[in-house]
């Protein structure tokens, strides 16, 4: 067997082991990196073996230059795409967070401001009573706050037919003494800034928003 044939089979076996073993463990980038390195080493060996076959130094150097160009572009492609391996995921999660935040504000914050307006405009007894009167539909059992999505889904709204879940968990807490209502919203999908944060619903590291309603207004804060 010719030397270059042995080199080819050896290279293919090394590249296969280097690619498929990491891939088996989900490390595809490592696998590709090893396969590319093996390919580059093989090209280098073939070039050095072929040096004496070239009729002129110029032809050899030109071929060498072309090989370097191909290798360089493979390296650029790898480095560029590896650098952006999480780009799509990060971008979509950021969009998801914007949607979650926007939908929650349009739903919860808007309603709490309406309660605040009713309380002040009609000189009602207390914030908590006003909340209970106006948000009767939203107040569920065991501190569960029913969002617009939950209510429309339960009512069989046809526009919700294709959406299984909004992936947002709503809760409320009432403090009668302080005359204050809190609504806590935890996302199932959107990631918060602290990966170890313990969310209100027992999840870890998820995006969490908190709305507090009292007679002074509605405060909104992102807890994670």
């Amino acid at each position: 067997m010719e030397r270059e044939t042995k080199l080819l089979f050896g290279g293919m076996v090394v590249a296969a082991l280097g690619f498929f073993i990491p891939l088996y463990f989900g490390k595809i980038w490592l696998g590709l990196f090893i396969a590319l390195i093996t390919g580059v080493i093989f090209l280098g060996r073939i070039l050095s073996l072929s040096e004496k076959e070239f009729e002129s130094k110029w032809a050899y150097r030109s071929t060498y230059g072309l090989v370097v160009l191909v290798v360089l572009f493979h390296a650029i492609a790898f480095a560029h795409d590896y650098g952006r391996k999480d780009y799509q995921k990060d971008l979509l999660l950021e969009i998801r967070k914007t949607i979650d935040s926007g939908a929650t504000q349009a739903d919860v914050r808007e309603k709490l401001i309406y309660v605040l307006g009713e309380y002040h405009q009609n000189d009602r007894e207390s914030i908590v009573t006003t909340f209970k009167d106006l948000m009767n539909e939203q107040i569920g059992e065991d501190g569960i706050y029913l969002s617009d999505f939950d209510l429309r889904k339960a009512a069989g709204d046809s526009s919700m037919a294709d959406i299984d879940e909004d992936n947002l968990n709503h809760f409320y807490e009432i403090d009668e003494e302080a005359d204050e209502v809190r609504v806590i919203v935890v996302a199932d999908v959107s990631i918060g800034s602290d990966p170890d944060y313990e969310n209100y619903d027992g999840q870890v590291g998820r995006y969490e928003m908190n709305f507090t309603l009292n007679e002074e207004g509605v405060s909104y804060e992102v807890l994670n």
């Binding site: 293919m12 590249a15 696998g31 396969a35 390919g39 093989f42 073939i46 076959e53």
Partner: peptide, 19 residues
């Protein structure tokens, strides 16, 4: 197929050409 791409373009092609 990724493995095959690398082997095809960086190994088999140059090998056949050189041979």
């Amino acid at each position: 197929s990724i493995y095959f791409n690398v082997v095809f373009y960086l190994m088999i092609g140059p090998y056949l050409f050189y041979r």
